[in-house]
Amino acid sequence: MNTSLKIFLIIVCILFIVYIYLKVLNKKLDHKSALTLIPMIIILMILCIFDKMLIPIKNFLGFEVISNMIFFLGFIFTSMLLLNLSIKLNKQNEKIIKLTQELAILKKDSKDEKNNR
């Protein structure tokens, strides 16, 4: 990987970490989510800095250049993150439906009870 691309990727990673940290400070993002994202970015940053380490793996897997492999890893991380978020969203959706149903039944029962008094 050439030096300018390396520096660019490292700067992007650092800016992203700072951005996530600011979101946590402003309470727009919880610590749990931040602690999932930050290690992924740090791993990508380390791979950018010590890219020579990856040469044997790159040759073994058949990537032309290391940057391709790093971008591919970034894509895999992002896809995993998206899947994880979709699962969380699905669970929350189920919880919202259950709460809405139970609230509606409770409201109905309490209204009926009041009318029967």
Partner: peptide
């Protein structure tokens, strides 16, 4: 006689 769901649940 009705039950009122506060949001649309499908």
């Amino acid at each position: 006689n009705f039950i009122d769901l506060s949001v649309n649940v499908g």
